[in-house]
């Protein structure tokens, strides 16, 4: 009896129909795994999230440095206009409206986005156009060798009260 059932199951499994489905399932499964492999590339061509930007003295008071904009997407700002404190901080170059890259206009002393006209003060705070919130700061600290070091893996949003965080700025009197 058992032998007969066993033969029947084998027969069913070996039928061309079942074999075709098994093969299809196997190929699809392997192809899916192969596609999933693309999620883990061997090489990531992204700039490092942590990088040194030279000593604080490179950044004079009330100036915006475009030096690292193209390579790393940050502005280094040294100003005493945010709550009257002398600070150096790194602003992300992503507009908080729809993600275009604003330009720093030195004559008008503002960041201005070419896509929808959002404007930000040197402090990063939005004041014109549709941007709903200030530009984001990224991490900035003084490394062990005395150089400034930006850490783009951290971000600080003003509207969340994160700009008081000590890793979001460096004391500007060091410059």
């Amino acid at each position: 009896m058992l032998i007969i059932i066993g033969v029947c199951i084998w027969g069913a499994l070996l039928s061309p129909f079942a074999m075709a489905w098994t093969a299809l399932a196997g190929v699809t499964g392997i192809a899916t795994l192969g596609t999933a492999r693309f999620m883990f590339p061997n090489v990531l061509v992204e700039p490092p999230s942590k990088f040194k930007i030279g000593p604080a003295s490179d950044y004079p008071l009330n100036a915006v440095s475009n030096k690292w904009k193209d390579q790393f997407g940050v502005w280094i700002v040294h100003t005493d206009q945010y709550e009257g404190k002398d600070l150096i901080y790194a602003l992300s170059t992503v507009c908080t409206h729809l993600g275009c890259t604003p330009s720093w206009l030195d004559g008008e002393q503002k960041f201005k986005c070419p896509c929808h006209g959002s404007g930000f003060y040197i402090t990063g705070v939005n004041f014109e156009g549709p941007a709903p919130r200030p530009l984001e700061r990224v991490g900035l600290r003084i490394a062990e060798d005395g150089m400034l070091e930006v850490d783009k893996s951290m971000k600080f949003q003003e509207e969340m009260g994160q700009w008081v965080d000590a890793t979001s700025f460096v004391d500007g009197s060091l410059a």
Partner: peptide, 18 residues
């Protein structure tokens, strides 16, 4: 990615949305 044309315009049929 670092440079946005100024002005930066959507395709013409989307300029109403912009």
């Amino acid at each position: 990615s670092a440079k946005t044309p100024n002005p930066s315009k959507a395709p013409w049929y989307f300029l109403g949305l912009q």
